[in-house]
Design a protein around this nucleic acid. Structure first.
Length: 204
DNA sequence: CCACGGATTGGCT
DNA sequence: GCCAATCCGTGGA
């Protein structure tokens, strides 16, 4: 067993709490995707929070649409969106019904299914040491490596296809807080969180 | 190492 | 028609 991981699925009451609390506590948790007998998993090392009530960069800022409606539901569901004509990104919906809040998973550290993650990302088997760190260090890369796409929109994270395993909480002095990256609006909100010195973080 | 720009779909004005 | 919560390749220092 990997140190720090508790083999226990996170329940609804983890997700329904306030956005920034959930965002921070998602660090260190294990993201798991199960397909038949295949398990892909990784430790969450970088996230960003989005809140449509005050945050122009959030997809929910414009109100409810077909694309973002899952974000207005209760916490603990997966919001997957497609962007730049090429990439999917995964978010964990947080809070209570009507909140329009979610946490973007920006980077994970691979744990299980390395060979499959590599195959999905690079379409070949072997990977050199450098490529290992380029596997899941970005929101689009995670979805490509884990084969997460539109068909996973709205999945209940308390179910058994995609879910999170608990882990010991990362202490505040191991968490770096910065502005979010890759956006053009509400650029000053300090809503990006990542694990200090972790080599799988997308950018420092 | 860093900066820049192109790719390419779909959501929204 | 505009442009994006990204990624990758290129070109220069």
């Amino acid at each position: 067993m990997t140190p720090g991981i508790i083999q226990k699925k996170l329940k609804r009451n983890f997700y329904t709490r306030e956005l920034l609390i959930v965002a921070k506590e998602l660090l260190g948790k294990t993201l798991v995707k199960k397909d038949k007998d295949q398990i892909l998993s990784g430790k969450i090392v970088e996230v960003e929070a989005y809140d449509g009530s005050m945050d122009e960069a959030a997809h929910t800022f414009i109100g409810k649409t077909k694309r973002n409606e899952i974000m207005f539901g209760v916490g603990g569901f997966l919001y997957v969106y497609f962007t730049y004509g090429a990439h999917f990104c995964s978010n964990v919906v947080t809070g209570e019904i009507g909140h329009g809040t979610a946490v973007l998973i920006r980077a994970i550290e691979p744990i299980k299914g390395m060979n499959v993650l590599i195959k999905n990302r690079f379409n070949r088997n072997l990977v050199n040491e450098k490529e290992k760190y380029n596997l899941t260090n970005g929101p689009g890369k995670i979805c490509q490596a884990m084969s997460i796409n539109k068909s996973h929109y709205g999945i209940d994270l308390t179910g058994n296809q995609i879910y999170l395993l608990d882990a010991t909480k990362i202490s505040d002095d191991e968490i770096v807080i910065t502005k979010r990256i890759g956006i053009k609006k509400s650029v000053d909100l300090p809503w990006r969180f990542y694990i200090k010195n972790n080599p799988f973080v997308s950018k420092r």
